[in-house]
Simulated assay, not measured.
Amino acid sequence: MPEEIINLLERFLSHSISKEEMYRLLQAYQERQISEKQLEDYYAHKWKDAEQYLSPFAGESKEKVWKQFRKHIPQKSKMWPKQKKRWATIASVAAVAVVFFMLGISLQLIRENVQQELVVMVENGQKASVQLPDGSQVRLNSASELRYSPDFGKKNRTIKLTGEAYFDVKSNPNNPFIVQTHSGFQAKALGTKFNIKSYINDKQITGTLIEGSIEVSTPQFSEILSPNERISFDTKEITFSKSRIHNANEAIFWMTDQFTFDKETLEDIARMLERMYNVTISFASPDIAEIHYSGKIKNNSMENVLDLITIVSPLQYTITGSHITFSKKNNKPQKLTPMT
């Protein structure tokens, strides 16, 4: 692209982009560092804001834009009308293209910033322990993810959680420890022990305090928890409830491969089993998923859990590879064939 056009395009985005940045944008686009879909999505949201940078050409026709460009293009002895028309189109499109380049590089920078986060991912059927730079300890349950910045503990102690984790937070009154989850739910602590369960597909987010004190909040509410208290946030109904429990340590039974159920549906239990044992579970009829269970299971294996479920309810299960299907028991008496 001629130097004169670069200069003019720079004027289209005055106060927002330099000549050096212009070349970098062009290079970034040419090297296809981002997809067209990313550009289109971002462009749809940002184009209106970007229009202010097109001054003094905003709102002008293609012909007027062309006249401005023509002043900066070396003139040959003769240019045919078709050539003029073609250059007018190029001139009018070029300004839009530069905005695309600018937005594209913004997306690239955003993506690079995200990549700079430190991420701990735990697959189905696995657990993990993490010591954070500030000395705090985290235990992650199956199918969980923890994200935090490389400078964690310096300016702030904010982490992002998807899934379930137990936190043993190192005390620092001058730098609160904050756990952010989906749906705007977060917990803030100074030095304490607590458990957060926040799986994307679960209906509720729960926070259980074991020691110390934490503040749990969403845009809709804020509550202070004391030991042996639990907050339950319904992400669909946008409601919450705080309750006192007999033993908060039951919330971390998962750390020792134990289960505790409190009026939980089989559908909820199935999601937990899927994460813990890396299986998939289905139901022969929808009403099976709504059966409720309460109790504890210790020293369990997957088969032990499945057997106990079918013992206390009229259900049976079949296993095909890594897939489990619950169905109702067939209690019809067998028809005997007389011996001859």
Results as ranks from 00 to 15, higher is better:
D262R: 06
Y148K: 00
R111C: 09
N331V: 13
V119A: 13
P2N: 12
N300K: 13
P286A: 06
K62S: 15
P2A: 01
R111L: 12
F57W: 00
L161S: 03
K67A: 10
K335D: 11
T320W: 09
E223P: 01
L109C: 08
V216L: 11
E264F: 01
S285P: 02
E117G: 00
M22W: 10
P2T: 09
A88P: 07
E267K: 14
M22I: 14
V119D: 13
L39Q: 03
K328D: 03
S313Q: 04
K84S: 12
A95R: 11
K160Y: 15
Q137A: 11
S217Q: 13
S106T: 13
A248V: 03
F326H: 02
P219D: 10
N331F: 15
Y148H: 02
W80R: 14
F194T: 00
F261L: 07
Q52P: 03
G184N: 04
N141C: 08
T162K: 15
Q116E: 12
E250A: 10
P333S: 02
S18P: 00
R70P: 09
M102T: 12
D49E: 10
S313E: 03
S35Q: 06
K46R: 10
F326S: 03
Y53E: 05
D257I: 08
Q126A: 12
S213T: 13
L336G: 05
T337W: 05
N7S: 05
I238Q: 15
F194H: 03
I205D: 02
E215P: 11
E264A: 06
F101T: 00
H246V: 15
I196A: 05
T325P: 04
K127I: 10
S241K: 07
K197L: 03
T280N: 07
P74Y: 07
K242M: 09
T181Y: 00
M79F: 01
S322P: 00
N175F: 00
P227E: 05
F194I: 11
F326D: 02
L315R: 06
A284Q: 11
L161C: 01
D168R: 05
Q204Y: 11
K85N: 08
A44I: 08
E164I: 01
K197I: 04
L273E: 01
Y293G: 03
Q131E: 12
E164N: 04
N249A: 01
F253C: 02
V99N: 11
G135L: 00
V122A: 03
V98F: 11
F221N: 09
R157L: 03
K78C: 11
N201W: 07
E250V: 02
K188G: 09
F177D: 01
A97V: 15
P227C: 12
P286D: 05
I324V: 04
H246G: 14
L26W: 12
N201H: 13
N299R: 00
S243G: 09
M102V: 13
L107I: 15
A165V: 09
W66A: 09
K64G: 01
F100H: 12
Q131R: 13
V120G: 06
M276Y: 08
Q186E: 11
G104E: 06
A94H: 10
L118F: 08
E303I: 12
T280M: 08
T320M: 13
D49N: 08
R244D: 07
S294E: 09
I224A: 03
